[in-house]
């Protein structure tokens, strides 16, 4: 898949239906994901910077439920 253009705004999103609250994302993307009172991820809605994009990609790749993804506005 081609890399999106530099000026494309991307955000980390979670499919709450797929998510089982495994929680690996919160360890890999500490600046983007925190967990709620029940262990489910609360994902930052901010546009991803170049630095946070790396964290986001790691979290997306590690999710065993394939519940995380990068969304373009």
């Amino acid at each position: 898949m081609a890399e999106p253009a530099v000026n494309v705004i991307q955000r980390l999103r979670v499919d709450a239906v797929r998510c089982d609250g495994v929680g690996i994302c919160a360890h890999l993307a500490v600046e983007l994901v925190r967990v709620d009172s029940w262990g489910y991820p609360i994902v930052s809605r901010q546009p991803l910077s170049a630095r946070s994009l790396r964290q986001a990609r790691a979290a997306v790749a590690a999710c065993p439920r394939r519940a995380l993804f990068l969304a373009t506005d």
Binding site: D36, W38, Y40
Partner: peptide, 12 residues
């Protein structure tokens, strides 16, 4: 009963 924040959160 699909999403954690709903299943556990609303019960809480």
């Amino acid at each position: 009963r699909q999403c954690g924040p709903c299943v556990f959160g609303l019960r809480g």
